[in-house]
Amino acid sequence: MSSPIHTSVAQVIDDLFGVPANALHDDVELQDGLQLDSLSVIELQVAIEDTFDIRFDEADTADVTTYGRLVAAVSDALDRKARSA
Rank of each mutant, 00 (worst) to 15 (best):
G68M: 09
T7S: 10
D27V: 08
G68T: 08
D79C: 07
L30K: 03
T65M: 09
S3L: 11
S8M: 13
A77M: 05
E43P: 00
D26K: 08
K81S: 13
D57G: 13
R55H: 12
A62Q: 12
S2A: 14
D50A: 11
I48V: 15
A82W: 00
D15I: 11
P4K: 13
F17A: 00
P20V: 04
H6G: 02
D63T: 08
S75D: 15
T66K: 04
H6Q: 11
Q45W: 05
N22S: 14
R83M: 00
D32E: 15
D37H: 08
V9A: 07
L39F: 15
L36R: 03
D53P: 10
E49W: 11
I48T: 10
T51K: 14
S2L: 14
V46F: 13
L70W: 01
E49K: 13
A72F: 05
R80Q: 06
M1D: 13
T66E: 07
P20G: 02
D27W: 09
L39D: 10
I13Q: 00
G18P: 01
D63H: 06
A72G: 12
D27C: 10
F52Q: 11
T51I: 05
I54G: 06
Q31P: 01
A23W: 04
Q35C: 07
R80E: 08
I13V: 14
V9H: 02
F52C: 09
A85R: 01
D79H: 12
A10F: 00
H25W: 13
S40V: 03
H25L: 09
I5M: 12
L44K: 01
T51G: 09
S38V: 09
Y67D: 03
L24K: 03
A82S: 14
H6P: 02
T61Q: 10
Q11E: 15
Q35N: 11
V9W: 01
A62G: 06
D14I: 00
G68L: 07
T7G: 00
A85F: 00
F52K: 12
E43K: 09
R80T: 02
V9L: 05
V41M: 08
T61E: 09
T65K: 11
K81V: 02
D50P: 04
D32S: 15
I13W: 04
P20F: 05
L36Y: 02
E29H: 13
D27Y: 10
V19K: 06
I5T: 15
I42R: 05
E43F: 02
A59C: 10
G18M: 04
L70A: 08
A47L: 05
V12I: 10
E43S: 12
V46M: 14
L39R: 11
V74P: 06
L36M: 14
V28A: 10
F56G: 05
G68C: 11
L16W: 02
D14P: 00
D50Y: 02
